[in-house]
């Protein structure tokens, strides 16, 4: 069997140089996706006329089109319509694409989480003279966030791995670098195994942090 464990050790530090790019795409996309997702979820939850219909279309569109197609539309397609967009680099395009896609999933998760918060919370806040935005900020959104945490974590985990698709935009992140290294050394199995393990480790580390966060927050919700 032709397996070179030593090569795997050699290729690891080379790959890790591109870990920051992967993390940047994942964390930045998740940040924007949470903001957009919350905004869309609130529109849908409060059933704001017209905006609600637009929000439904938004969710349907960005959940319905494959990620790769979305990325291509943004990076290769949009500059054709809007010439000023030719200056957009691949990193920006990837972050925009992933943000839009994940926000559409998060919007549905957040909407369900908002729905599951007891209506008595809003009444209690209003009855003490708070404004509705105050009640949302202080109680409803934090409680919904706790409800949404497990599903949101799943979205982040899947995003973390899906960033590997960004190589198609010519962006050198973890997986793109693995491809480059593999085709130079012809050590395909070792290289891809190492990069796979790196992703796996990332997910394990992230899951550990999320588990701790869930335990900490659950003090308010579990007897």
């Amino acid at each position: 069997m032709d397996l070179d464990p030593l090569y795997m050790l050699e290729v690891l530090p080379q790959l890790l140089k591109f870990l920051p790019v992967t993390l940047l795409i994942a964390v930045a996309s998740m940040f924007f996706a949470i903001l957009i997702g919350l905004f869309v979820a609130l529109i849908r939850f409060l059933r704001i006329p017209v905006l609600d219909q637009l929000a439904q279309l938004y969710v349907s569109l960005f959940r319905g089109i494959p990620t790769l197609v979305q990325l291509f539309l943004i990076y290769y397609g949009l500059p054709q319509l809007f010439p000023f967009m030719t200056t957009m680099d691949a990193l920006t395009a990837a972050i925009v694409g992933f943000s839009l896609k994940e926000s559409s999933y998060l919007a549905e998760i957040f909407r369900a989480a908002l729905t599951s918060v007891d209506g008595g919370q809003l009444e209690a806040g209003l009855a003490t003279g708070m404004t509705a935005p105050q009640v949302y900020r202080r109680y409803i959104i934090p409680q919904a966030a706790y409800n949404a945490l497990p599903a949101t974590g799943n979205i982040f985990i899947s995003l973390l791995k899906e960033t590997s698709v960004a190589f198609t935009l010519g962006l050198t992140e973890l997986f793109a670098e693995a491809k480059i290294l593999a085709s130079a050394s012809f050590r395909f199995f070792e290289t891809f195994l190492v990069v796979g393990l790196v992703y796996w480790l990332l997910v394990i580390v992230y899951s550990w942090f999320q588990g701790r966060l869930e335990t900490r927050l659950s003090r308010a919700y579990v007897r």
């Binding site: 202080r138 109680y139 308010a220």
Partner: peptide, 21 residues
């Protein structure tokens, strides 16, 4: 509405305490 609400406080059957506080 808010001015009137500030004049009273309510005690609910189901308590409705803020769960995250």
């Amino acid at each position: 509405v808010r001015a009137l609400r500030k004049k009273t406080a309510m005690v609910f059957q189901g308590y409705n305490l803020f769960r995250n506080r």
